[in-house]
Amino acid sequence: MPQTLIRKNPGNFKTLPLFVEATPQALAYQSVGMPQNFTQTLERRQPIAVDDPEQFSIELANLGVSVRLTLAWQGRDYWVLVRQRREDRGDVVLKLISGYVPAHELNLPLHTAVQEVAEECLLETPGGWLNGRFKETWLPDAYGGALKYRETPTFDLIPKAGAARTVLCGAQALIEQPRAYVHLPTASLQLVYDLRLEVPKEAKGLSLYHVDERLENDQLVARLSRKRPDLYLIPLDGGKPLPELYTLRKGELHAAPTRGLFLAESFASQEGWVVREERVKWKDWLHRQGLEVPAVRRSGLKKVATKARALIRLARHKL
């Protein structure tokens, strides 16, 4: 049975609409209007269009952050994805760790991104749950009231090289240089931070879990389900993704099915500053990366059944 970790009042969350100006060299945003709650934000997330994806001025519903998190574990690197049922869009996708930026952090979205890692990516060992640090700052133990966090060892969360083009809040360039795109179907500005999570060698028997908040009876509820970890890994080779997907339980990788799988829009093609797609099929994304879709392996029983059907067809033909 899933374990309830925390309950929140969704009315406490406030964000702000944005005014965005984009040029081929940079993108700048600033808040406009009055603070809005989660319901009001969703109402504003309606499809928009721009004539020139490199240069435009437009008002948007909200600012969101995502983290392209690279997990360094046992000498190999993996991208971290989480499963989400998106009620507002009626689909289920694998996506980057992500969240809405509250009004008081619009000028420091990196803080929101780091907080999302602490809340959505949970690392369990037989001795308890791991905490970590971003540079010299401890991450919050997001569920300290429900989970036992270890004092040692700890993981390190490290910023990687930033994007080439500048993103500004007002006139101030954002630190760690996130990638930015305007998602046209939801009228939102999305910032993607590139971070690396280094698991300590002492962390044996590691399991990874995703926890996300869902609205239930006017409360935001976060639950942990060990039967559905909902956190997935794409292995990297020389920094490039491989056409494989895994979960990690008790120190062992388990292959995850990819049939009918969709990835969120952060994996879709970006044109200038904009992304037009809602989602992208796993196999289509692999093709765009120049990767071959792995052939489905047949079990021995299926192979026998296939051969038997072929022999029956041959016998009927001869008769």
Rank of each mutant, 00 (worst) to 15 (best):
M1P: 05
L5S: 12
E21H: 14
P24S: 04
P24K: 06
N37E: 08
P47W: 07
D52I: 04
E54I: 10
E59D: 12
L63E: 10
L63G: 01
L69M: 10
W79V: 03
R83K: 12
R86P: 04
E87P: 00
V92S: 12
P102A: 03
P102C: 07
A113L: 09
Q115C: 07
E116P: 01
E120Q: 15
L122P: 08
E124W: 10
P126I: 07
G128T: 06
G132V: 02
G132M: 09
R133D: 05
W138D: 15
P140Y: 12
D141P: 15
L147R: 09
F155N: 00
P159L: 10
V182F: 00
V182Y: 03
L189D: 03
Q190E: 15
L195I: 00
L195Q: 10
L195N: 08
K201P: 04
A203C: 01
A203N: 04
L208A: 06
L215V: 10
E216K: 14
L220T: 07
L220Y: 15
V221D: 09
D230S: 13
L231P: 05
P241V: 08
G251E: 02
A255P: 10
F262V: 03
E265P: 01
S266N: 01
A268V: 08
G272C: 07
V275G: 00
E277Y: 01
E278W: 01
R279V: 02
V280L: 11
L286A: 07
L286P: 11
V293D: 11
P294C: 08
K302I: 02
K303L: 14
K303V: 09
L319F: 11
